[in-house]
Amino acid sequence: MKYILPRLLIVVLFVSCYKDQSIFIPDQTYTINNDLFLSRFIAAPTSYLVNLQLGKTIVHTSENMIVEIPYEGLIDQQGEVVEGEIKIEIKNFSDKTYNLLRSPRLVYENQLIFCKKMFYISLSQNGQTIFAKNLFLYI
């Protein structure tokens, strides 16, 4: 009888060791940055450096969109016409469904928006945002 308890303890110890496993307890305050998080899955817009022509400037993107910039079609933040090299960041978000995860919510006044085409475009020169006075995009 005096050996039963020690033997039982050994069995319990063995069983508990056998079921040894790590338990992951997440930090409940860990907060993700949505845009940084989504950038792991969805590529950012593509950048194009473009020299504005004296006439019309045409940029044909790798995603088969065309940007048409008429002469003097862009202005800076002071309202002056932009000349020289500019940067166009552009992406077609509608060619693959999962790209839309990184787009604005497709809801307007609670109505679901069924998207045929969705794109993002941003224009800058030397790091400063510039604006379209007269610019067309074909998609």
């Binding site: 509608s94 497709l106 998207c115 045929k116 794109f119 475009i121 604006f131 379209a132 074909y138 998609i139």
Partner: peptide, 16 residues
């Protein structure tokens, strides 16, 4: 395709 006039400081466009 579609021809869109870009302006008004907008970056996002959606045709639905």
């Amino acid at each position: 395709g579609y021809k869109i006039s870009i302006g008004d400081n907008n970056n996002w466009y959606c045709i639905s």
